[in-house]
Structure formats: structure tokens, C-alpha cells
Amino acid sequence: MSAELDDLYQEVILDHNRRPRNFRRLEGGQHAEGFNPLCGDRLTVYLQIDDEGRIGDVSFQGSGCAISKASASLMTDSVKGATVAEAARLFDRFQQMITGPADGPIDRLGKLEALAGVRRFPVRVKCASLAWHTLRAALEANEGMVTTE
């Protein structure tokens, strides 16, 4: 096994794939559905925004590869309690990390840094960003389906 593969499929990713956090339906909030036509990944992100404009609760459901599932799971953990603007900034920084130069420095993104290995697998960037695109659609209360295409 190559070091790059070990980096991509590191224990945190495998753990979130096996036991995704916040993997449930949330009633009474906003949601959006995301689809990656390339590989058939499909997930729904559910949100509840509290009175202060913060993401009070967030969850997801769906099926997909290990990268898309782990990314969705890690995302829900990291945006819970964030304001809408903070979540949008986090998405930008996450996107920069997974599309950045293969050996460039990694931004400090806490648990999300586990997905930095995606930089070396450009065809998997869409898998890692699907949940985030879907989150943005849910924040905009966009009920239509977003795709990574």
C-alpha cells in the first residue's frame, strides 16, 4: 500500500465511514439533497438554525463512498454551533485545502485536516466536497437537488 493511500484512508476517515456521526433525519428544519453523478453518491443534509442565526443542529443521511460519507460526518461535527457566515468561511477553507498543491502547507482546520489527503487524488475532490455543497444549498433553503457537476 502506498503512503498516499494510507494518508487518504487514514483511521479517522475509516472510523467516520464505519460509524458516521449525526447520521439521522432531522424534522422541522431545512434540508437539501446532493448528488454526485460520477459515482452515484447521494446524500441529504438536514439543518436547524436557532434564533441567534447559528446552526443549532445538523445531520445527514445517504449512501456513498468512504470519502463522501466521512466528509459529511466530519462536516456535521465541525459546523454545529457555527453561524451561517462561519460555516461558509469554513467551506471555503476546506475547499482550498482539498484542491491545494499536493505538498503545500495545510490550513489549521482541526478534524477536517484528516481529509487533506484528498489533494493527491483530484478525482475524489467531488466526493469530499459533496456534503459541503449540499450544506450550502440547505443553508439557502434550496430544496432542489445540487450536483457536483
Binding site: L5, L8, Y9, C39, G64, C65, A66, I67, R124, C127
Partner: peptide, 9 residues
Amino acid sequence: IHPHDIGTI
């Protein structure tokens, strides 16, 4: 194991 992960490995 999702087919896409199989393909990458």
C-alpha cells in the same frame, strides 16, 4: 466497500 474506493485503491 464502495466501488469508488475500490477503484482508487
